[in-house]
Write a protein that binds this DNA or RNA. Sequence first.
DNA 1: CATAATATGATATAAAGTATCATCTATGTT
DNA 2: AACATAGATGATACTTTATATCATATTATG
Lengths: 152, 152
Amino acid sequence: MLLRAAEVSCAENGARLTERRRQVLSVLMQSSSPLSAYEVLDLCNLSTTSAMPAMSVYRILDFLEQQLLVHRLSTSNKYVSCAHIACDHKHFQATHFLLCEGCSSVEEVDATQEASDALEQMAETVGFKLTTQQFELSGICTTCQNSAGRGL
Amino acid sequence: MLLRAAEVSCAENGARLTERRRQVLSVLMQSSSPLSAYEVLDLCNLSTTSAMPAMSVYRILDFLEQQLLVHRLSTSNKYVSCAHIACDHKHFQATHFLLCEGCSSVEEVDATQEASDALEQMAETVGFKLTTQQFELSGICTTCQNSAGRGL
DNA sequence: CATAATATGATATAAAGTATCATCTATGTT
DNA sequence: AACATAGATGATACTTTATATCATATTATG
């Protein structure tokens, strides 16, 4: 189970995946599209008796982000669960996100060497040294391309 | 003068660069770093007797963005004036922004063909068709690289 | 000048995010 | 088991960011 893998992953960093954190992560994993902090909050509070304060959600999202279990999309201020919780994928290089304009789904992909090089090169022409890269690219996913073609 | 060029540019689109719009644009052009909407508001209201409401600033920023006189940085929710108001530069391809972590300055650059191709290629491997690209890349600008080296 | 279209003012409110301090809980120590 | 301590959460208040809505003013055009 994914949550179990996340727990192990936390433990390796000397961190704990508490009940609340599990709850937040679970909500994000069940969503097919990115959620705002307050959307996460509302979903959490549906399934619980004791309401969680907004502050906690932000804290927990920060935590999960540090643990690389969750990624924050800075263009929309929303959050998605990492696509690689289960597998032993490492975030070596930059991670990019492909945002579908049709269905709001997100695809997480590793940066290719070519893309990283090209961008670094681009920055270098004006003397800039890049420190981080994470892009959010808008487009249309396969599914939506197909359904659009058939008038759906 | 830059404002004059902006005025012409608006006129070409059948739009008007009114006094208020000029004021907002002027504030942004004078700033060495991106400003939030409310920062723009405060600066505008320093130099005027009649206070402008927040709503107007947002409306005007939207307008200026449509006219490509101003760009919005989605990672920080801030605004910068376009680097190409004076020249007859066209925004053919994607525009990227290099954000200096040292001095908060912003460098606006055109996407290189290599970078665009590499990213498009990357998206294509998972069946994604890109529609737009605009990146905000963090790094260190030339000036800050030099001053850091000398312990400043 | 009348009038329609644009632009701005004014007010209220929603949504997003942070600061701060109190309380609770897991964990290790004696 | 009792205790101390660090880490996590609760509670409250507040700041920042953004939008909705309706009234008023300004400009272009017949």
